[in-house]
Design a protein around this nucleic acid. Structure first.
Length: 752
DNA sequence: CTTACGTGAGTTTTT
DNA sequence: CTCACGTAAG
């Protein structure tokens, strides 16, 4: 390695504790580099140390670098760590998500980007409603063109950097899709809104089109650091290339990309693992550093993960190892059915908990959300506290979106999506007919619905005489309300504004009359609280750097609400088991991990087998799941499972076969006979639907929780067992005498 | 404008 | 099975 640029003093606090590879990555010379960071290899540490090191050695100023992540959480984490290691002000630093940074850039140059200063951001739900509305207007058959599919199409195109006109369409169906896409973009433009993908595409196009702005940022950002590079999509990569000045003749800036091709699990959303190889080639990467030392798991777990992932082809190549010992074997449980599987998990959790593992350090992972139900049921019955990740987040809740819609209308009443959301909520007698009329006149006049409403009720002076159609009164009321809100909003603080949006709109009153509105009112109050803390914490956070325009706090808050929808669930204080999909578990770690539902058809998922390289992504998913565990890993599968109201019989996942038997401890059944060669899975889908003869699980001699008496140790309770019918050992908790393993063959245990 | 019922779909989802 | 959504009736 070329170390002429800098030689690290060994005692440098930034660099102490780094292993050789980490140190190498952190102190790489001034060139683009690719860091292959395995799970639990200290990736974030390296990324932040790199930033700190670059700054501290004077190679770059804090404002001269850009660090981009996928999640707000990761961005925050990075900022926190930077602040902890360097006495610098992170304000004005460009550390954030792709969307957050693009938003920031677009706000600063909204005119050049062709957007209003207070443009709003559509989340997926908003976007879908725009599409549905538009399709109705265009008279498109939503049977032939399911709105969700249209949405995926539009986002998919944008993620590849394509506008409607650039999309190939040779058949009527795709031509229609393209047409909707085009109309959709026009509609958004008129509303002054941008969807998630639009933020990136708009930003990309701006940089591509406007040489001044491009060069400005290119000369500013000497270093670009990218986290989770394997998850970047086509457009994100193009954006990065543009920012580094890659396409231009001038020598380009440095890109420091950190990623793990084995953890690429978002291909279905447009992520391109291939970007890693492209990066290597496009940037003529001289430095690929592999971080393979894992600080998380014992080696049995890592070896299992390595074995599984080695079945993938075309990897960049990496093998995790650890200085920690082998640890416990990976436990495998062959359940009779899904209920049995859930019960097994509950029993094991009870035991782990008895032994002192805190519930919050235990995760239950599954491939699809539907699997959580049965687990929840079992946990609930056992009185075990749990927390399910997923579902609606704070800013996605209906009542919150309603309040935000009022706030959006205060910022810009021409926002059709916001208007339609609340024009009749709380109800004010505006029915479908009057709405249709409004939408129709908006379309004829090519104006916003707000404008159409104003035209209808007259500008300012309300004419209550003459023909008053049913809806007019309601519309008048709505127009007056919004105007009044805008008036009142003038000069007040953001929390006051949030308060205004929840009360003056009638939302609070509406929910007060609702029997089940209590929680919603609580949430609305919480929204005001969120506005308070946003005001305090983010005040000046987006200060004028570099000609950024001062955007009002309201717009900032609304962007924040869209871009950072909040935690998935708030009750963090309580000690609770963590239930989540494997996708949601990425980046997390737990002392003990249960991966359930390891059956063909579920994991790998049936659907994935029809997609090309679908199986490999499923395997990466399994790899991610396995590498979450620090000490103990349970893999379970059920011989039968209730799915879509029918009993399905599944065979164990092929991924189980890919783990060497010596790493496993089969908790009940005898190991599946290994046929030496690979199993033939080609006819699986057919097999799945057939009913196989189910071999009954061996009867367990001792159930967990069974009370027993022992001549020497006294009374106890069975907490665990292992082995098979001939050679069974049970673990018994004798209270004061402690936990004992007893071989059933010798120990005289009497059930009581 | 609610409420009830029928219908159909049902992987994963950082922003 | 279970949820979300759309349509019909009250």
């Amino acid at each position: 390695m070329n170390s002429q640029t800098y030689s690290a003093p060994a005692q440098d606090p930034l660099l102490t504790g780094l292993n050789d590879k980490q140190l190498e990555a952190v102190t790489l010379p001034h060139q683009s580099a690719l860091i292959l960071a395995g799970a639990g290899s200290g990736k974030t540490r390296v990324l932040t140390a790199r930033i700190a090191w670059l700054i501290q050695t004077g190679q770059v100023s804090p404002t001269g670098l850009l660090a981009v992540t996928f999640t707000n959480k990761a961005a925050k984490e990075m900022l926190t760590r930077i602040t902890a290691s360097l006495p610098i002000n992170t304000r004005g630093m460009w550390v954030g998500t792709f969307h957050g940074l693009c938003n920031r850039l677009l706000r600063a140059h909204h005119r050049e980007a062709g957007l209003p200063a207070s443009f709003q951001i559509l989340d997926i739900a908003d976007q879908l409603s725009v599409i549905k509305r538009l399709m109705k207007l265009m008279n498109v058959d939503d049977e032939k063109f399911p709105p969700k599919q249209v949405q995926n199409f539009i986002n998919g195109c944008k993620d590849e950097g394509l506008r409607a006109h650039a999309v190939d369409a040779y058949d009527p169906h795709s031509q229609k899709m393209r047409e909707i896409f085009e109309e959709y973009d026009k509609q958004c433009q008129r509303d002054g809104v941008a969807d998630f993908a639009e933020l990136l595409l708009r930003c990309y196009e701006l940089l591509a089109r406007d040489a001044n702005i491009r060069q400005h940022y290119q000369s500013r950002f000497k270093y670009i650091l990218v986290d989770e590079f394997q998850d970047t999509n086509q457009l994100q990569y193009l954006w990065l290339k543009l920012l580094t000045g890659h396409g231009d003749d001038a020598k380009h800036n440095c890109m420091f990309a950190v990623g793990d091709d084995d953890q690429s699990i978002y291909g279905f959303r447009g992520a391109r693992v291939g970007n890693m190889r492209d990066f290597e080639k496009d940037f003529n990467i001289q430095h690929i550093v592999k971080l393979e030392e894992n600080y998380r798991s014992h080696s049995n777990i890592l070896d299992a993960a390595n074995a599984i992932i080695s079945h993938n082809t075309n990897r960049l190549g990496k093998n995790l190892w650890t200085a920690a010992g082998a640890g416990e074997p990976v436990r495998v449980y062959d359940a009779y059915n899904d209920t049995d599987e859930a019960q097994f998990i509950v029993d094991e959790i009870k035991m782990l908990h008895c032994e002192g593992t805190s519930l919050g350090d235990i995760a239950l992972l599954y491939r699809s959300n539907a699997q959580s139900r049965i687990l929840e049921h079992a946990l609930f019955s056992a009185n075990l506290p749990y927390r399910v990740y997923g579902g609606l987040r704070f800013f996605e809740r209906a009542e919150i979106k309603h309040a935000l819609a009022y706030m959006r209308l205060i910022a810009n009443a021409h926002d059709d999506t916001a208007l339609l959301r609340v024009i009749n909520f709380p109800t004010r007698g505006i029915g479908a007919r009057s709405l249709e009329q409004l939408q129709a006149s908006a379309r004829t006049d090519n104006c916003s619905i707000w404008q159409a409403a104003i035209n209808k009720v007259g500008n300012g002076a309300f004419s209550t005489h003459g023909v008053n159609r049913a809806g007019t009164k309601g519309i008048e009321g709505f127009v007056a309300l919004i105007r009044q809100m805008v008036d009142e909003a003038y000069g007040i603080s953001l929390p006051e504004l949030a308060e205004l949006a929840t009360t003056m709109s009638g939302l609070t009153a509406h929910y007060e009359n609702d029997r089940e509105g209590e929680d919603r009112i609580e949430n609305l109050k919480e929204l005001v609280t969120a506005a308070v803390s946003f005001t305090n914490q983010d005040f000046g956070n987006h200060n004028n750097v570099d000609g950024e325009t001062e955007q009002d706090l309201l717009t900032q808050f609304l962007s924040h609400a869209s871009l950072e929808a909040g935690e998935h669930q708030a009750d963090v204080g309580r000690e609770a088991l963590q239930l989540m999909t494997v996708h949601a578990s990425k980046g997390l770690e737990f002392k003990a991990v249960f991966i359930s539902g390891l059956e063909e058809g579920l994991c790998p998922h049936e659907q994935s087998l029809y997609e090309n390289s679908g199986l490999e992504e499923e395997r990466r998913l399994m790899y991610v799941a396995v590498t979450r565990a620090r000490q103990r890993l349970y893999l379970s599968h059920a011989q039968s499972r209730m799915l879509h109201g029918k009993v399905r019989y599944g065979i164990p996942s092929r991924f189980l076969d890919e783990i060497p038997e010596e790493l496993l401890k089969r908790l009940n059944a005898k190991p599946v006979a290994r046929s030496g060669g690979a199993r033939d899975y080609s006819e699986l889908p057919a097999m799945m639907s057939k009913q196989q003869s189910s071999n009954q699980k061996n009867a367990m001699p001792w159930k967990i929780g069974q009370q027993v008496a022992h001549s020497k140790f006294g009374n106890g309770v069975v907490v665990s067992y292992e082995g098979n019918a001939n050679d069974m050992r049970v673990q018994v908790n004798f209270g004061r005498e402690g936990l004992k393993w007893l071989a059933l063959e010798f120990a005289k245990l009497i059930p009581i």
